[in-house]
Design a protein around this nucleic acid. Structure first.
Length: 506
DNA sequence: ATGTTC
């Protein structure tokens, strides 16, 4: 259903007004704390409107203490309570923290490692390389990781993140310097993580998992901003490795545990929300602090997970190419989360009493500490922001946007307008267009693999053919268009594009 | 995403 006007769209009762090219607003009404905005082209907006994403976005504006706007990125789709591709910032004093607005897979994210190999070094050896990676990097559902964790191991991983990996020889100092938050959230509270969550995680440290998680060897095909690409150490034909995974069963259990506790202990707040899946702990409550501490511990777990997989990948390349990883310059470019909640300071509208205000009552702008929820959204801080690591502070934070295994991926950098438009955030991937069930009806894993190999020279190896069918290139939105919107809005600027060579997955 | 169903 579409309104007559070019500048208004109505989907299933949700009305959006075009603010400018690629920006659509759901204006605030009586029930909403703030307006909501969707960043999308016409085509992507139609896809976003195809499920409950817009209703979920509007629902999110009811969360207590939400400031500015609720945002849906161009790759947005329906999630648990809150859209995947959603950003919501709640005041850290008067607002709330919502596990459903962070996601079950806490610190699901992506890291990219450079090499000094070129595509010519790998051509003809793809099958050997993909087999070696598949044999050495644990993947699939269930247990079995690179490290078998005893009690001290899991406690150290949760408390110290990549510092733990450094202490145990799985990382070098330079890895820490090229990771969001240097791979460690000091706010982590391992005591707030249940024994059940620890038990699920302890034999999964260093494992890819299943679903859309993967390890991919790629070649750089396009450079869009040569001066930034040079700072990132990227050039055409270079081989890079992309690792996409999260906190496995541990993060999932943390999310489940706290959703249940919030429902039990803050039923009053729950009753005022339009969807119980948005369950939130009030800022300042004991439970909000406990969840934040547990969530930060799960963040640390995921960083160690990706670090161990990268470490193992270096060892595999050493054997396959018969050189030290240092000689192949296998250095971490960056590791960035896309399911995460963090206390960050941003400029917001405040009323005469200095409290966060909606636009009507605002008298000033002020720096406030917020719980920034990014669920299927990537931090995209521009040059100059203190949290950007020293290596990139003058150019902006690297952003890694994985595409499907047939479409390649992008490296962006934090855009000048990300702080004013999206609390320093952009998209996180291509986003699905069909369910996993539908994908398995449309595609057959082995056929997908054969076509990718024979037509595109992409070598895929997976635990399960069903997973390949679920992740077939045809089930994803057009990642090129997602990135075009980000670049056009100035929230994440295109730097380089990569194309798959070898892919392993669950 | 996920010991693929609390």
């Amino acid at each position: 259903m579409t309104d007559d006007s070019d500048d208004v769209r109505v989907f299933d009762g949700v009305r959006l007004e075009r603010v400018r090219e690629h920006v659509w607003e759901i204006p605030r009404d009586g029930e909403m704390g703030v307006p909501a905005r969707v960043f999308a082209s016409e085509q992507l907006l139609e896809q976003i409107a195809d499920d409950k994403t817009l209703q979920q976005l509007r629902n999110a504006t009811h969360l207590p203490g939400i400031v500015g706007r609720a945002i849906c990125m161009p790759d947005g789709h329906q999630g648990y309570g809150f859209p995947v591709g959603g950003v919501g910032a709640m005041d850290a004093e008067t607002g709330c923290i919502s596990p459903g607005a962070i996601g079950y897979d806490i610190n699901c994210g992506v890291r990219m490692m450079r090499t000094n190999l070129t595509y010519d070094d790998v051509v003809g050896r793809e099958a050997e390389l993909v087999d070696a990676l598949f044999a050495n990097v644990p993947s699939g559902l269930g247990g079995g990781g690179i490290v078998e964790g005893d009690r001290d191991t899991i406690e150290g991983v949760l408390a110290r993140g990549i510092d733990w990996a450094l202490e145990h020889g799985y990382a070098v100092e330079d890895d820490l310097a090229h990771c969001e938050d240097e791979g460690m959230r000091p706010d982590a509270d391992p005591d707030a993580v249940s024994q059940k969550a620890k038990d699920r995680g302890k034999n999964q440290i260093g494992s890819l998992g299943s679903g859309n998680h993967f390890l991919e060897v790629q070649r750089v095909t396009d450079i869009y901003r040569p001066e930034v690409a040079a700072e990132f150490g990227l050039e055409p034909d270079q081989i890079v490795v992309l690792i996409h995974c999260g906190s496995r069963g541990l993060g999932h259990q943390v999310c489940s545990d706290y959703l249940r506790r919030i429902e039990q202990e803050h039923g009053d707040l729950l009753e005022r929300l339009p969807d119980k899946e948005l369950a939130a702990a009030p800022a300042g409550s004991e439970l909000a602090e406990e969840y934040y501490g547990a969530m930060c511990a799960a963040i640390n777990f995921a960083w160690v997970n990706r670090q161990l997989i990268m470490h193992r990948t270096r060892q595999v390349f050493e054997r396959v190419f018969d050189r030290d990883w240092q000689a192949m310059e296998m250095e971490l470019l960056y590791d960035v989360a896309h399911n995460i909640g963090k206390k960050e300071v941003h400029e917001v509208d405040v009323d005469a009493d200095g409290r966060p205000a909606s636009s009507g009552e605002a008298v000033a702008r002020e720096q406030r500490e917020l719980y920034v929820h990014r669920k299927g959204a990537t931090r995209a801080f521009p040059a100059g922001r203190a949290e950007v690591p020293a290596a990139y502070r003058d150019v902006g934070q690297p952003i890694i946007i994985p595409g499907s295994m047939g479409a390649g991926s992008y490296v962006l950098r934090g855009g000048e307008r990300s702080l004013s438009r999206s609390f320093g955030s952009t998209a996180h991937g291509a986003g699905r267009t069909m369910s996993r069930t539908q994908a398995k009806n449309e595609f057959w894993g082995e056929t997908v693999q054969n076509e990718l190999r024979d037509q595109e020279k992409i070598y895929v190896k997976a635990q399960s053919g069903a997973t390949v069918a679920e992740e077939a290139p045809g089930v994803y939105k057009d990642v090129d268009e997602v990135v075009r919107v980000s670049d056009d809005l100035g929230i994440g600027d295109k730097v380089a594009r990569t194309y798959p060579v070898c892919n392993i997955k669950g």
